[in-house]
Design a protein around this nucleic acid. Structure first.
Lengths: 246, 246
DNA sequence: TGAACAATTATTGTATACGATTTTAAATTG
DNA sequence: CAATTTAAAATCGTATACAATAATTGTTCA
C-alpha cells in the first residue's frame, strides 16, 4: 500500500514548515511557541499580544513578531485589530458551531482514509500518543493533555497522507482548543480518551467504515459538550483585566 | 427560515476582510489586487513577485508588500522561499489531486446547505453571476470568465451562511485556478456553464439532495478534465524566463 | 461629585537602512 | 573553448526610527 511516493512535498518551496507556510527562522519559532501556548491553554482567549512584549520575551524585533502574529491570524488563532494590536482569538458561539460542523464533515472522511493507509508504524505512533496523553493527565498537566488530545486528530490526518485536508484539520483543531477554553462545560476531559481508544481499535482492524462512524460520533459528542447558549463572559473586561496581570 | 441573525461577524475584530484576516489598508489592497490577477490568469504560476517590483507598482513600501505576500502564502497562492523571494504558487500534481478531493468532499455538502438556505435574492445573485460569466465569455475575456466561474462556487458557500467552510472553499477555489492554469487539457471551458445552470435549477427547486449530487458530479468532472499524468512543464526555466521579461 | 474636554502616554503602521544570502556575470585557467 | 573561480549586483532578512492612531490620565467646569 505504501507507494514509493516518499517525498511529501516536491514543490519548489519544499523546505517550509507544514503548519505555517514560512521559511525556517525566528518568525516560525515564535509562531510555534505561541501556538503551543494557546493549545495548552497557557494563553487565554482575549489576551493581548503586544508586539514589544512578545518581542522582548523572545529576543526578537517587532518586524519578526509582526510576521508571526499575522501568520497566527491566518490560522484563526489570533485576531488583529487595526491600530489596536493582536489578541488571542475569542471564537464566537457561531464560529464554535461552524468549526464543529466542519469537523463533523471533514474528519470522519479523513479517518476513513487513515484507516485504509494505516501501517504498523502508524499504529505505534498513535498508541504512543495515547500513552503520552494518559501520562500528562496523570501528572495533572491538563494543558498538555488537551494539546495532545487535539494533536491526536491531526496525526490521523497526517496518516491519511492528505496534506490539504491535514492543514484544514490542523486549523480546525487549533480553533477547537480556543472554543473549549471558552465554552467547555463538562468536568470530564478524560472521556475523550475512550473515543480515541475506540478509534485506535478500528484502525487496528483497518476498518475504515467503523473509523468514520466513530470519528463522527466523537466530534458530535465534543460539540454537545459545549455550552453554546450564552456569551462566554458576562463581564469580559473585568475577566480580561484579571487574566492580564495574573 | 431567515433568522434575525443578521450580523455575520460579532467577534471583536469584526471589521476585517472575509478573504484575508487583515485590517483594511494598503496591505489588503495589494492582496486583493494580486489575488484577482492570479484568479484571472494574468499572473502565471511560477512568476516571481519581487518585493521591490510589487512595491513600486502599487506605490508601497517593502514592509507592506511583504505582509501581503505572506498573507497570500497562507492562502496557498504564493510560495515563499528563504532568501529567494515569493513566487506565484505552482501546485504539484499531488496537490492538484488533493485539492479536488477536498472539494469533492466539502462542496457538495455546502451546496446542500445552500439549497436549504436559498432565498429569492440569492437566486437572483446567482443568476446575475451566470449572466456576467456568459458576457465575459462572449467578450472573449477568458480570464474574467474563469474567475467568475470559480467565484460561483464561493458565492454558494456564502449563501450556505457558513463562514468557516466558506473560507476553506475560497482557498480551494483559488488554488484550483492555479491548477487549471497548469493542467487544464480540455478546450471547452464553457462546459462548466452547463453544470452551473443545472445547479441553479436545483437551487430554484430548493432540492438539497439534487444540488449535492450535481455539485459532486461537477467537481469530479472538473478533476477529470485535468491532465495530471505529467509534470506541468518540461522546461520550466525557459517558460519562467519568458514570463519574467515579457 | 460627575461628566466633558485636553494633554500625555503608549502602541501600532510604515518607511528606510544595513547586513546576509543568493544569483549573475566576468575573469581566469586548464 | 569549456569549466571553474571569483567578484559584482541584486534581493531578501532584520533592526531601527519616525508618523499616525488609540488609550489613558489629569484637568476643568457645570
Amino acid at each position: 500500500m505504501a507507494k514509493p511516493m516518499t517525498d511529501l512535498m516536491d514543490t519548489p518551496a519544499g523546505h517550509q514548515h507544514p503548519l505555517f507556510p514560512l521559511p525556517p527562522g525566528r518568525t516560525l519559532d515564535i509562531c510555534t511557541e505561541l501556538h503551543s501556548a494557546i493549545l495548552e491553554h497557557r494563553l487565554a482567549p482575549g489576551t493581548k499580544l503586544s508586539e514589544d512584549e512578545v518581542g522582548e520575551i523572545y529576543g526578537a524585533s517587532r518586524t519578526v513578531v509582526r510576521a508571526a502574529l499575522q501568520a497566527l491570524a491566518h490560522s484563526g488563532m489570533v485576531a488583529i485589530e487595526k491600530n489596536r494590536g493582536a489578541f488571542v482569538a475569542k471564537p464566537t458561539v457561531r464560529e464554535a458551531h461552524e468549526v464543529f460542523q466542519a469537523r463533523a464533515l471533514i474528519e470522519p472522511a479523513v479517518a476513513r482514509m487513515a484507516a485504509e493507509a494505516m501501517t504498523i508504524e502508524h499504529l505505534a505512533q498513535l498508541k504512543a500518543h495515547l500513552d503520552a496523553e494518559h501520562a500528562a493527565l496523570h501528572d495533572g498537566d491538563m494543558g498538555k493533555a488537551l494539546a495532545l488530545s487535539g494533536n491526536f486528530h491531526t496525526v490521523i490526518a497526517e496518516i491519511a497522507d492528505q496534506q490539504v485536508l491535514t492543514q484544514m484539520v490542523r486549523s480546525l483543531i487549533s480553533r477547537s482548543s480556543l472554543i473549549i477554553a471558552l465554552y467547555w462545560k463538562r468536568a470530564d476531559t478524560a472521556c475523550e480518551s475512550h473515543s480515541h481508544h475506540a478509534l485506535l481499535k478500528a484502525f487496528e482492524e483497518r476498518n475504515g467504515r467503523a473509523a468514520e462512524d466513530l470519528q463522527k460520533s466523537h466530534i458530535i459528542d465534543l460539540h454537545s459538550g459545549l455550552n453554546l447558549k450564552q456569551q462566554p463572559e458576562a463581564t469580559p473586561s473585568l475577566a480580561e483585566a484579571l487574566t492580564r496581570r495574573g
